[in-house]
């Protein structure tokens, strides 16, 4: 069975240790976590996790069922139709030639997030795959540091 990438949106009760129940489940059963983001759902007792994982059909089915089985899990959304975005921050020294940077940022929904005496920090928000591309492309400005945020997704 072939491995495929899958985005899951998991609604859980926002209580102590709920994240360790989920990460423990993935670690204990040998499932992959490619990325994981979590934040409270405003004005509710819930949190929403976006988990990007991969595995074969049986593994993915088990992941969904095992997530459901956790007592604080309210809902596991495994829609094929997600709007999925990820952000990234990249720190670039000011001594670089910024020719073309603006156009590149524009192409990836980006902007300059901060600047200092010796550096600028740029931010982009785009599909996970395009973030891969952006992080490759930005290398020509010799970035000193970069961080990506993990996917967030909404089913549509």
């Amino acid at each position: 069975m072939e491995n495929v990438r899958r985005v899951l949106s998991v609604i859980v009760i926002n209580e102590e240790a709920v994240l360790s129940r989920i990460s423990g489940l993935f670690a204990g059963r040998g499932y992959n976590i490619d990325s994981l983001t979590v934040a409270p759902v405003p004005n509710t007792e819930f949190s929403r996790l976006t988990i990007v994982t991969s595995g074969n059909k049986r593994v993915l089915e088990q992941i969904v069922k095992q997530l459901h089985k956790l007592i604080p899990t309210y809902k596991v959304i495994e829609s094929e139709e997600f709007v999925e975005k990820e952000m990234a921050l990249v720190k670039i020294p000011l001594n670089e030639d910024f020719n073309g940077l603006d156009a590149m940022l524009k192409a990836y929904n980006g902007t300059i997030a901060s600047s200092g005496e010796n550096f600028v920090v740029v931010m982009v928000a785009d599909d996970a795959k395009r973030i891969d591309n952006f992080l490759k492309a930005i290398k020509k400005y010799n970035p000193t540091d970069m961080v990506r945020g993990g996917s967030v997704a909404l089913d549509v």
């Binding site: 049986r58 089915e61 088990q62 069922k65 095992q66 459901h68 089985k69």
Partner: peptide, 11 residues
């Protein structure tokens, strides 16, 4: 009674 038991090992 446990959905995760179904299809875990065999189809």
């Amino acid at each position: 009674i446990d959905p995760s038991s179904i299809g875990k090992i065999v189809d």
